[in-house]
Every structure is written in C-alpha cells, then in structure tokens.
Design a protein around this nucleic acid. Structure first.
Length: 340
DNA sequence: AATGGTAGCAACCGCCTCATC
DNA sequence: TGATGAGGCGGTTGCTACCAT
C-alpha cells in the first residue's frame, strides 16, 4: 500500500500569488514547527494551499537566508562556468551560490546570461561558438554590400567619415572571424562545427590575434593539473578553448585550462565520484583555493580579457545603436547554403 | 494619456528519483 | 518486489511593470 495522494487535484486549494497574510502564516508555522512534512504543513499553518506550493514559496522566497538583488559579475561568472559543466542543473548550481535559489538562477540565466551569450556568438546550451555558419557568411556579404553602398554614394561622405573608424574596426573583427573559420576548415564538420578546427582559439584571432592567455594557461602543466585525477591528455588541450568558451571569459574559472580536462571527462568524474564536486566547491563564491588563485592571476589584468573586450564591444554598440543586434537580426532569418 | 510590446520574475506543471508500504 | 507517494527539479506559463509609440 502506498500513501494517500498529496494535494491531489483539489479544486478548493488556492493557487496563484501569495498574499502577505499567507506568507506570514507560513513563516510563523515553519519557525514554530519546522517543515517536517510539507504535506502536513498547510493544515498546520491554516493555509488553503498545496504542500508543494508552500515548499516552493518557502524555498524560493521566504527562506531567511535568501539574498535578493542584482547578481554580481562574480556570481554571473560562477553561473556560466558551472553551467558549462553541469548544464541546466539549477539546483546544483544554486548550491554553490549562497543565498541564491535555483529558480532565481534559472530565471537569470534565461533572461540575462542566455541573451548575452547569444549576442557574443556563443551557444548558451553547448557553450561553444555558434555554428550557424550561414549566419556568418550572410553577415559578411551584408557588410560588403553595406560598404560598397557607402562608397558609391557620394553625398553620403560626411556621414561615412563619421562612422568609418568604428565601422571598420567592427567589420574587420567579423572578417577576422570568417577568415579563421575558412582557414581552419574542419575535415568533417560535425554538429558542433568547430571541433575539427586546428585553431583552438578562434576568438583570440578574432580580436586581433593577441592571446590574453599565457602559454602556461593555454597548455596545462603538471602544476596546474594537480587537481585532476588523471583525466588529462595533451591532445585534448588543443581544443580546450573551443570545448569551453568560458575560457575566454578571462576572470571566470576555466575548468579545462586549470584542470587540464575536457568537459566530458570532467562531467564523467563528477558522475563517478561520491562527492562529485570538489573542484566546483572551490569555484564557488566566498571560498579560496588554488583554483581561485589561478583565477586571481587573470583578474590582475584589467580589460585584458576576451570576455571584457568582447563585452565592451557589445556594450558600446548597445549604447550607440545596437550595431551588432541589428546585423544579427537582419541575418539570422536568411539561409544560404555553405559549400566548403 | 492610451495602447501595444517586451522583459523579468513568481508560481505552476509534470516528470523523475527515492523512500515507504 | 512492485506499487505508490513525497519531495525535488527543470521547463513553462502568466502576471506585472516598464518602455516605446
């Protein structure tokens, strides 16, 4: 025999937003009795709510240790890094952000970070560069057409001069990206697109070819692999940055570069160990570790990271007229086939 | 000032896992 | 050992506030 159904579709149970009175009843009850059984709690508290609803309200809103307010940049980086490894495991991500709830993090991801990554050309699910090459090719064509149009429009010179510098820089950025993609044609293009590429740092090239990561950071040494339980391989390092674009986020913790393992092996190690997240604990806020020390090194170079540079570019455009956004909007709907 | 569109977020829904019977 | 429920989790919905027209 099982138990009687929990809050089975009782039409009389209240749904929807909680009133301050209900909140107070719930808080009082939990303070007095704890929440041994969520199922029994509504009756105990005098609430006409489902136990599940009470639990949700408590864990997501009323819990005293909840920290409200804007996410900090540091929190955002932790979320991105953890998401790169854990995926949409919001509760596990939340476990590393004191005071934040899984729901809050999930919402923040969906409304803020996701958009940000997309704007940066990064697939928020895979954390890899977006592989919609049609999108990029069209982007290039659009830019060429746009430049030709400007050149062939004599009365437009004044305006052209005004925007030329910024425009050129941005155009060049895009062309660099296309060049990188084209000169590193993968032998086979898989669904992730870039995995066959020989250039592991496409975005570095994109921003002018000057790597902001030291050789030591790019190629894990025995010292920075000490945390790794033997899951590293030199060949995998060639693709580290592609496997985890968070590597480009500079200040954020890069699991692969620091641990010398790729996402797969890292994920596997999490699955296999009893205490699956020792490194992640180190990556959490408010804790120091050798990992964070590595982290700190990169933080000493302001404005030197790809993340910041890229972010700055995006911000700049958002401020002056959403150049990128417009381009992305214009091109995302078209689809011309690419032949390698 | 009114209206329509959009973003953010709280809350619900439904599935999954694990404990209990 | 299988059936069942509680709790937990991720996905989705819908309300509300804000902004643009």
């Amino acid at each position: 025999m099982g138990r009687s159904p929990c809050c089975a579709e009782d039409a009389n149970l209240k749904k929807g937003p909680w009133t301050p009175e209900e909140d107070q009843k719930l808080v009082d009850c939990i303070n007095k009795h704890g929440h041994g059984s969520w199922r029994a709690l509504p009756k105990l508290a005098g609430l006409n709510r489902c136990g599940k609803s009470c639990r949700l309200r408590w864990t997501n809103y009323l819990r005293p240790d909840i920290e409200r307010g804007k996410f900090t940049e540091e929190e955002e980086r932790v979320i991105i890094n953890l998401h790169a490894v854990l995926g949409n495991k919001w509760s596990r991500i939340a476990a590393h952000l004191p005071g934040r709830t899984d729901n809050e993090i999930k919402n923040y991801w969906n409304t803020q970070i996701r958009k940000k990554l997309l704007n940066m050309g990064i697939d928020p699910q895979t954390h890899k560069p977006r592989t919609d090459l049609n999108h990029l090719l069209n982007l290039s064509q659009l830019l060429c057409a746009s430049q030709l149009g400007n050149l062939m429009n004599p009365w437009d010179t004044a305006f052209k001069l005004q925007v030329d510098a910024a425009q050129l820089a941005k155009t060049q950025l895009l062309q660099n990206l296309l060049k990188i993609i084209n000169t590193n044609k993968p032998e086979t293009v898989d669904t992730a697109g870039f995995l066959g590429s020989q250039n592991p740092y496409p975005i570095e090239g994109l921003l002018g070819g000057t790597s902001t990561l030291s050789d030591k950071e790019l190629a894990p040494t025995p010292e920075n692999v000490t945390n790794n339980a033997g899951a590293t391989s030199q060949t995998s390092t060639d693709f580290q940055a592609l496997e985890d674009p968070c590597a480009y986020f500079g200040n954020g913790f890069n699991y692969e570069n620091n641990l010398g393992m790729n996402n797969q092996s890292l994920s596997n190690s999490f699955e296999q160990t009893e205490n699956p997240l020792p490194e992640l604990v180190s990556a959490s806020l408010g804790q120091t570790s050798s990992i964070n020390q590595t982290d700190d090194k990169t933080e000493t170079a302001p404005d030197s990271t790809i993340y910041e540079a890229w972010d700055k570019l995006i911000m700049e455009d958002e401020a002056d007229g959403s150049y990128w956004k417009e381009i992305l909007d214009l091109t995302s709907s078209s689809s011309s086939p690419i032949s390698w």
